Amino acid sequence: MDQEQSRFLDPQSPYTLFLILILLILSSEKDLESHLEQARTFILETKRSLESIRGGFDIMQANLMSFRTHLMSIDK
């Protein structure tokens, strides 16, 4: 286990304490599975949206590089 992973398992880490708090709150709910499914859906949709945004930036950068190359060839 590397240092970064062991840091997240540290009992005094704020991330670990936050995770424990969230799990305790969720465990007191009767419909825990539906809450977890909603959280899962939210996380997956956020991931998908960020991947789309990243793809858009990559395409925009490629287009700008192509445009720049075209402008440089016109100047010569």
Rank of each mutant, 00 (worst) to 15 (best):
L44K: 14
I20L: 14
L17C: 04
L23G: 01
I74L: 13
I22C: 06
L36W: 06
D2N: 06
I20N: 06
L64Y: 05
F67Q: 07
S13D: 08
A62H: 12
G55D: 08
Q38Y: 07
Q38C: 05
D58H: 10
E51P: 02
T46D: 10
F8C: 05
R68L: 06
D75E: 08
Q5K: 05
F18H: 13
L21V: 07
D10W: 03
E51I: 03
H70P: 00
L26A: 03
R48E: 13
A39Q: 11
S6P: 00
F8Q: 12
R7S: 12
Q61V: 11
D2A: 03
G56Y: 02
T16A: 05
S6F: 09
S73Q: 07
L9A: 08
E37F: 13
T46Q: 15
M65Y: 08
I59S: 11
L17K: 15
I43D: 04
D75G: 00
K76V: 10
M65L: 14
M65C: 10
L44C: 07
E29Q: 09
D75L: 12
S52P: 00
E45K: 15
A39W: 06
L9Y: 04
S52C: 10
Q38N: 15
D31M: 10
L17V: 11
Y15M: 09
L9S: 08
Q38A: 15
L9M: 12
K47Y: 05
S34I: 07
R48L: 10
M60H: 08
K76I: 13
F57N: 07
Q61F: 13
S73G: 02
G55Y: 03
R68M: 06
L26R: 01
H35M: 13
T41F: 05
I74G: 02
E37P: 01
S52V: 07
F67E: 11
Y15P: 00
A62T: 11
Q61Y: 13
S73W: 02
T16Y: 04
F42K: 07
L32G: 00
D58M: 07
Y15V: 10
T16N: 07
K30G: 14
L64K: 03
R40E: 10
E45Q: 15
R48M: 08
Q61D: 13
P11M: 03
D10P: 01
G55P: 01
S49A: 12
E4H: 09
L26D: 00
L23K: 15
E45A: 09
I22R: 05
Q61C: 05
I74D: 02
G56E: 05
L19N: 11
E37H: 11
S52E: 12
M1A: 14
L26E: 01
G55V: 03
Y15E: 11
I25M: 06
S28P: 01
Q12V: 03
G55F: 03
Q3K: 12
F18K: 09
M72E: 15
A39G: 08
I43V: 14
S6Q: 14
E51V: 03
Q3R: 11
H35L: 10
D2T: 10
L24D: 12
P11T: 00
L9K: 04
D58S: 12
D58T: 12
G56R: 03
L71R: 04
A39H: 07
L32P: 00
L19C: 14
G56T: 02
P14S: 03
P11V: 01
I22F: 02
H70E: 09
K76Y: 06
Q3T: 05
K30I: 10
Q61E: 15
E51H: 10
S66N: 08
A39M: 15
L71F: 08
L24S: 12
D31I: 04
F8A: 04
S34P: 01
I22A: 06
